[in-house]
Nucleic acid binder design. Structure first.
Lengths: 212, 212
DNA sequence: CGTTTCTGTTATCATTTATCAACAGATTTT
DNA sequence: AAAATCTGTTGATAAATGATAACAGAAACG
């Protein structure tokens, strides 16, 4: 049985400097105006360390997505489940990505997605309220958030275009080219679902690709 | 032959008040802090009226998308073209929508998409430079831009999830429910392409749906 | 007006992909 | 160590969708 995230204690890091380094680096990679010392402290205090183990839920369908999570270490997947119980992967998430259902987090509506940990995962999480109270006045943070939204919109449109335009074989080839890191972290049936095909079809596609 | 947009003259509206009303209303619908009189003037002067006729290109594959366009009246489509010359519709755009390839506009890279007018169309356009120079200091504009990106990212993810999760029949049913206005503006083969299926398949799906 | 283009339907056949089932090696759990 | 689960493959068959072609009414065009 998977345990629910709400049963786990939140706690602030005992060593505030160590855990947040990758987040600070990440933010600064997205902005022209570097963070001041004060702002770095604000960020470190606003984000809270949370660890979840493999198979544990970060978000379950029907819940409001309370946290946005920056993944420090680990791997997660975001997916919907249809009438027949089949899972459809809409996102694969690893280090230096964000785990959040933006629709639910922003609109405070129940999510149609599940997010769970594929590997033991360490995240830095923040609620919408804490974000608004502590971070929305920091220019670099806003700049990053803007660019993230922009990049996300662009990436999702590309993926959509690939799905309506290309064959399963070409979609996999493109995916293997641009996201080879995922191939090593997730098994084939997860990749297949991400591409919108069955695991059997992907297995055959790969086999054919070898003989070319 | 389709004429290219760059051959057409740009001109500022002779009656600055009349043409920009829908844009001002649109902006204010997205923001909590209303525009000041001065800001309204800045907006009216920054956006330039452009009319294009049916079938004319607003953007061609290979070009950098120089303009972001707010559609005042008319209908457009955004699409890619594959090896075989088949068009794949990635977006259908009508009044109160934006016509722009965000990736190209933001990154200044050549676009992989075409955008053309399906009906005679009136737009208010702005270059990235003019946006940065004149509008980026207006809080309401930034608030709107943020929310637009947010909404766009959410909507595209929904469409992507539908594409990897649902049958063509269900995708069309959902589309007909949530976007009935498009059914009246665009012919079936355009809708089919938007859904990622052929026009023949859509024709059969619709016929089956009647007998249920 | 006649002609052309556009739109939508239907039929036939081909291709792609899904479904179901069985299996084996690897990994995890107990 | 044994049992259970996970992962990937393969075969047989079914279902969904695409490709091609032909056709007819509607709309646009010269």
């Amino acid at each position: 049985m998977q345990r629910d995230i709400k049963n786990l204690p939140l706690r602030r890091s005992l060593f505030p400097g160590s855990m947040h380094e990758s987040l600070i680096k990440y933010i600064e990679s997205y902005t022209t105006t570097p963070l001041t010392e004060k702002e770095i402290d604000v960020v470190k205090n606003a984000f809270v360390l949370k660890k979840i183990r493999k198979k544990q839920y970060f978000l379950q369908e029907g819940q409001v997505c309370k946290y946005a999570a920056f993944i420090v270490k680990g791997a997660m997947r975001q997916y919907s489940v249809d009438d027949k119980g089949t899972e459809h992967i809409v996102g694969l998430l690893i280090e230096n990505w964000w785990a959040v259902d933006r629709e639910s987090y922003v609109m405070l509506t129940p999510s149609v997605y599940n997010i769970d940990a594929w590997e033991d995962t360490e995240m830095l999480v923040i609620t919408k309220a804490d974000f608004l109270n502590h971070l929305s006045s920091i220019p670099a943070i806003n700049e990053m958030a803007r660019k993230l939204d922009e990049n996300y919109a662009i990436a999702t449109q590309k993926r959509l275009n690939a799905n309506i335009s290309f064959s399963a074989e070409k979609r996999f080839a493109d995916f293997a080219n641009s996201h080879s890191e995922f191939l090593q972290r997730f098994p084939q049936h997860i990749i297949a679902s991400y591409l919108g095909i069955t695991k059997e079809t992907l297995s055959r596609i790969r086999h054919q690709a070898v003989n070319k």
